[in-house]
Write a protein that binds this DNA or RNA. Structure first.
Lengths: 138, 138, 138, 138
DNA sequence: GTGGTCTAGACCACT
DNA sequence: GTGGTCTAGACCACG
């Protein structure tokens, strides 16, 4: 259960954490009851401030994706069923904004559907399958 | 020559304007000499701050994409040749970041290539060809 | 649009703010488009840290109750319709936890329904009608 | 003599135990000499930390409500006289904070006295008379 | 050990 | 002017 944090990226650190947890839970790679690294451990590992990690965890707890086990850290909540059909819909919903943005930009750039799809396919092939990469390009 | 502005989107308004102009010029849909809406008109139409429009226009002028014609507002500059092979490479370069981001998220969500491509195709079909849409989905 | 903040209360300050906004919006006392005091103004008025206010506002934005007008502060979001039947259900849902807790305690203390209701009525009569009190007892 | 513990509730576990004992003793449902479950038994039954139970019992002992019988665990102390007029006042005092909180929230939500009382009555009817419920609504 | 809260101050981005 | 983000450090509550 490792995180990929890039302090220099334009996306705020706390949001990088939030989105990674969302995607890993939605994809079923992390399951209900799995323990997350402690605030202090994650902060120290990536040389960031504990409050930044805490902020991300708090947001995920408010969202219902994580649960606080008092005195024992955070675990993945038991509410979602990522395996079923609802899980598939959720995953699509999470991916859709990125696809729509890309589609809109392709249109504004005058690309035909085939060209855009071909370029996207090339991007997919250049993106490793595992979600556990340590330093993804941004 | 209409703009699509969404004040509630995470992308800053001035950047939305900048990127839209870049794409429409790169694609050849807007050509040298075309007049852009005045700062005041664009600001009023979308209920945004004139300073925001002005900031975007200034950035585009500094970039050499627009020219300031005294008393006539801004027009598309004459420097680029969007039709050639170099233009094609430029258009791809402009689209690539969005595609890479989508590809990465698709991977982290556990989608196979075929699924991701199919979802992207659906998005493309739901996105009108013209760049003149007024309210795209967010 | 005034807030009642008691730094010495056991309830965290940021949560006092969150709950007050929730209740005032749910009751229709604050309506869509109403502007909230700025982070800095509210912080200074009650001699608390701006980050504490900001945290409360951020939570309310994530909840969809407030909207950020960039560069212009926060306003009440336009999504809810507090006047309708759904609003009434929402208000009841917000009140229910407190009532249930009181009911459970009354039971564990061995009160009969009539006694508990009578005591509650006395409490209601001692609680001013206006929600704008500046220093409510805790 | 069963306890209702909800580890996920905002109220700390040790305090849930303390308050339940207080209420059951004040109401006369638990009487002098009654034995409480052992620290280990209570901890195991609710899957909580024995230290948490021990902390609650110690607080109650310091308060004079419980007594430690060597080798026999804790029993309800003999000091109070819950049946008299003073006992009634005590019970009311224990219930009052919850009622005041509910009344304040009802006011801030814009409820009239009649509505609030009616909702409270419904809550009371849905709350079993016995204090031995195992899973109350949260 | 765990996370929560608050403070103080700095810097950034946007309008 | 607005809010957002991050850092550093302190203290608390809980288990």
């Amino acid at each position: 259960m490792r995180f990929s944090i890039q302090p220099s990226a334009p996306e705020p650190i706390y949001r990088q954490i939030v989105e990674q947890v969302r995607r890993h839970v939605a994809s079923g790679q992390w399951r209900a009851g799995d323990e997350l690294p402690s605030v202090r451990a994650l902060a120290q590992e990536h040389a960031i401030n504990p409050m930044t990690v805490s902020k991300a965890y708090s947001l995920l707890e408010a969202e219902g994706l994580l649960e606080r086990r008092r005195g024992m850290g955070m675990v993945v909540a038991a509410r979602r069923s990522p395996g079923g059909a609802a899980g598939a819909a959720r995953r699509e919903a999470l991916l859709e904004p990125a696809l729509q943005a890309a589609a809109l930009q392709a249109r504004q750039l005058g690309f035909a559907d085939g060209e855009a799809l071909s370029l996207f396919q090339r991007c997919l092939q250049h993106t490793p399958t595992s979600g556990d990469r340590d330093d993804e390009p941004r």
